[in-house]
Design a protein around this nucleic acid. Structure first.
Lengths: 410, 410
DNA sequence: CTTTCTTTGTTTAGTAACTGAAGAATCCTC
DNA sequence: GAGGATTCTTCAGTTACTAAACAAAGAAAG
């Protein structure tokens, strides 16, 4: 009743492993301090991890007056995971090792309106190619993470891909995946509260609260694209008015640019002239390029968008008491340098909790492939991190179907 | 590794107790289904609770084809808790029983600029009067919950009050308390995701995610009063422009009403003429009264405010995937009937996840004393619900001396 | 009324995951 | 090289569970 805090049974191994991963290098005593477990427990848990080949002893630390600590490190190449990001425009594949580092990466054109069976076969083939390119044995691959903007629409696809690749498939939201990817690749602290602002064609946010990803009761979290920023703004497909996405999302920026003759010409916008799968993505890239080259109209357009995004980001930060905000996704990969200073300025001057703790705003070092990396990270997490803490919920009991295909969103 | 999910050791007793409370009446089999624990475990846990006098057997259910279930109920009068809400305008005290039901309630004028020692003595005296009014033995009172808009400013006050009353004191945010109060008083499901929109002088939100209250790394959560609704709106004290609080909070509504001669006269606004502690609260009440009596200008003013609040609420719901939204706090107690339909309409037409699950918007049945009730509920919770699950957090380690080679992530 | 079946609740033996304490190993200092 | 400091391991004991057998209470059928 009054003893020290404990760890949920099944999660201890995973928690220790996660600490080793997050710390990069740590001793058993370090784990004792970090977990609150006793030395004896850590000793046996670590032995198990070493036996499985997941962790290795790598040298000693300086003495602190007695026996030197034996340092432990993750055996990064003990296991691998595949991440697949289905975007309208492109499909991105990554193979990561246990540390979340990208070992191989390929990117192919999006599937468009192709037959699902054909897409499944193609993706399976490309996953095979990815794995073969670095010659990793199949049984060292923990699974495949599949992420998309609307995961609920890819249910059947995931199931089929599971059969085609013979890998366990987990399905999730791309923005959530991007957040987990940032968290996993170590840029963000293990127990921190942060959001990954994800800008692709739309705008969303993946949310991690105190180290735990937040998915909400139906997986529709972080929809900041529908933050209201103008009560009488233009009507959005969601039913409301003045949504961020309508006012300042990539599609809106492109539309505004197309309406500007001079800018259209200067940036060489694709416009409606081609039948490219995603003229929006292409044109947004063109506008960003023009901005980088000093086109003042392009700069003004992006900065206007950034002001809106910044207001939404501040709202989000104020609601969740965020510690870190990471900009990620294809559009921030291209135009992040314009948005970053605007968001920083907004949060430095108007974040409510700024006296209590700083909020760090940064650009993801791998914004373009963040969702795919995150997809792989979800696999790593689902294998290595606690499946669940606390009570089994009534909803779980309702759906007692065979766990063929693990899905993270409903 | 593969078995059913388990319960954190220390929390089982509390989880079962909480289920009994939430269900009102439940059998052991019901607890088995709700928790996922086995009958044997439930049997022993329930015996313990009965031995402690917290739970009692109360009759039988109809037979479902075999032995009838023995129904269990919380022994509501086994323990009590005191809740104190420090508002600028008023101090509200409640004594609740174990079920969160209010047994006694008093409300006194706010402390204003009085000396702290005097206020502590006065509050302690009034708490004594509250307890004596129903003749509850002191040792049955679990503790005192103290809530305020800016709890960090009442640290020393809480400590002093602890000495003066000889009761354990817990300190928290008033909006968070209101949310816990709603959760505890059973209007909201045990594992639901919801927010309590709290409108006093300012606007905030208490957040409960999947049955767990979310406080954030520094306790500054749910600051939806600083949701941006107009990029070029009036400047707010927080440093930003177009904050909800500036555009549509009670203070803004009052200011707009005062600028309207006809309405000022009709509603009999206090304005700046008196030296009352909180003219805003009094005038907001007067405007609401005028609206109820059919004054179209007052109605228009409040409905305008409601449209802004609704937009902020929608933003919040979209970010957190809310299932329930409760309107609470003094201002909603007065004007909730104007705000409720506007919020309902907004969320029915534009909540992103509305196809996945409904969002229920309702008015708190005890909006005026919700924070105080919540304060008491926090005490009940801190006594009866798991102290902590999972890992020890880095903040706990901060006090300890750092080993030379500590490489934990910050 | 008796038998059989269903459902509820209890008891008991066994197990996983820890703790606590003792001891072994390693290093530093004098 | 003796003694203390620190790290790590071992092992018996505790806790909180599960699984399975059992007992008790009612319903349904004969």
């Amino acid at each position: 009743m009054s003893g020290p805090a404990r760890v949920t049974h099944a999660s201890t191994r995973a928690a220790v492993l996660d600490l080793v991963r997050a710390a990069g290098m740590i001793s058993r005593v370090g784990l004792v301090n970090a977990t609150g477990l006793t030395g004896g427990t850590i000793s046996t848990v670590v032995r198990g991890l070493i036996d499985e080949g997941l962790v290795a002893e790598t040298g000693h630390a300086e003495s602190t007056g007695g026996k030197r600590r034996v340092m432990l490190q993750l055996n990064h190449f003990a296991r691998y995971a595949v991440g697949v990001h289905l975007d309208d425009a492109r499909i991105t594949y990554v193979l990561t090792n246990l540390g979340g580092a990208v070992v191989a990466r390929i990117s192919r054109a999006g599937a468009g309106a192709d037959e699902q069976a054909a897409v499944v076969a193609r993706v399976a083939r490309e996953v095979d190619a990815l794995i073969d390119s670095v010659g990793v044995e199949r049984d060292r691959i923990l699974g495949l993470g599949l992420v998309a903007a609307r995961p609920s629409e890819h249910h059947e696809f995931g199931r089929a891909l599971e059969r085609a690749t013979a890998l366990p498939v987990v399905l999730d939201h791309d923005a959530t995946a991007a957040a987990i990817g940032e968290h996993w690749s170590g840029g963000v602290g293990a127990t921190s509260t942060f959001a990954a602002l994800f800008m692709g064609t739309g705008i969303g946010a993946g949310i991690v609260l105190g180290g735990t990803t937040y998915r909400g009761p139906s997986g529709h979290t972080g929809e900041i694209g529908h933050t209201c920023l103008d009560l009488d703004g233009p009507r959005c497909w969601c039913g409301a008015r003045g949504c961020l996405e309508m006012l300042a999302g990539p599609a809106a920026v492109v539309e505004q640019a197309r309406a500007d003759r001079s800018l259209s010409r200067a940036a060489g916008l694709v416009g409606g002239r081609t039948r490219a799968a995603t003229p929006v993505a292409a044109d947004f890239a063109a506008i960003s390029r023009a901005a980088r080259q000093g086109n003042t109209r392009a700069v003004a357009l992006l900065e206007r968008s950034a002001r809106y995004v910044a207001a939404a980001a501040r709202t989000l930060a104020n609601v969740l008491d965020l510690e870190v905000l990471v900009l990620t996704g294809p559009s921030f990969a291209i135009a992040g340098s314009v948005y970053l200073p605007v968001l920083r300025a907004e949060l430095d001057s108007a974040f409510i909790a700024r006296d209590a703790h700083p909020i760090s705003v940064r650009l993801s070092p791998s914004a373009a492939s963040a969702p795919a990396i995150g997809a792989a990270a979800i696999v790593l997490q689902s294998e290595l991190v606690p499946r669940r803490q606390g009570l089994r919920l009534p909803e779980d009991l309702a759906a007692e179907e065979p766990p063929v295909f693990q899905q993270l969103v409903r």
